[in-house]
């Protein structure tokens, strides 16, 4: 079961990359805001159907939760806008690696300080090295991309 789940999640990761490529392609013709709007609209439609059949939470409780929990939607919007803007300029790999680095760095900070009621996991040596490797990765992807585009123009 565990292995199957891991494989399944791996496939989830594949779809995220596919999404950035597909959206990048659509965005080149239709524009960044337009592409993000389309993604949100179709996502809403699919989720509406999924929730009808599989939702067992309580959507109406939304009026009772603290308002700061609702503010994350602005972040969700920024996330997609930024990705759709970046892919056509720097490509799928560089965008994805850079996004993941931003995600992990902030994730490590949130864990360290226990923001938003999260579990506190201090920034230790291991995570310090992890940050180092991320910087190395960022350097390589920048280099690799510059070289690849030089080869194309040459």
């Amino acid at each position: 079961m565990g292995i199957l789940m891991i494989l399944f999640t791996f496939l989830g990761g594949l779809t995220l990359s596919a999404q950035s490529a597909v959206n990048g392609t659509f965005g080149r013709k239709a524009g960044t805001i337009e592409t993000t709007l389309l993604t949100f609209l179709t996502g809403t439609m699919f989720l509406a159907i999924i929730i009808l059949f599989f939702g067992h939470g309580n959507l109406l409780a939304i009026v009772e939760v603290p308002k700061w929990q609702l503010s994350a939607v602005f972040l969700g919007v920024l996330f997609l806008l930024f990705i759709i803007a970046a892919v056509p300029k720097i490509g799928v790999i560089a965008t994805n690696i850079t996004v993941i680095i931003g995600q992990l760095v902030i994730g490590i900070l949130i864990d360290n300080f226990g923001w938003f009621n999260s579990l506190v996991i201090p920034l230790d040596m291991k995570r310090g090295f992890a940050l180092l490797f991320m910087i190395i990765a960022l350097y390589f992807i920048y280099k690799g991309n510059t070289r690849a585009s030089e080869e194309i123009s040459a």
Binding site: L78, I83, A86, V99, G102, Q103, V105, I106, I110
Partner: peptide, 19 residues
């Protein structure tokens, strides 16, 4: 574009924690 992508990732983490 790299900075935008970094910010996108940062937004995703905040978003994940809040959601």
């Amino acid at each position: 574009s790299y900075i935008l992508a970094l910010l996108a990732g940062a937004a995703l983490s905040f978003e994940g924690a809040i959601y």
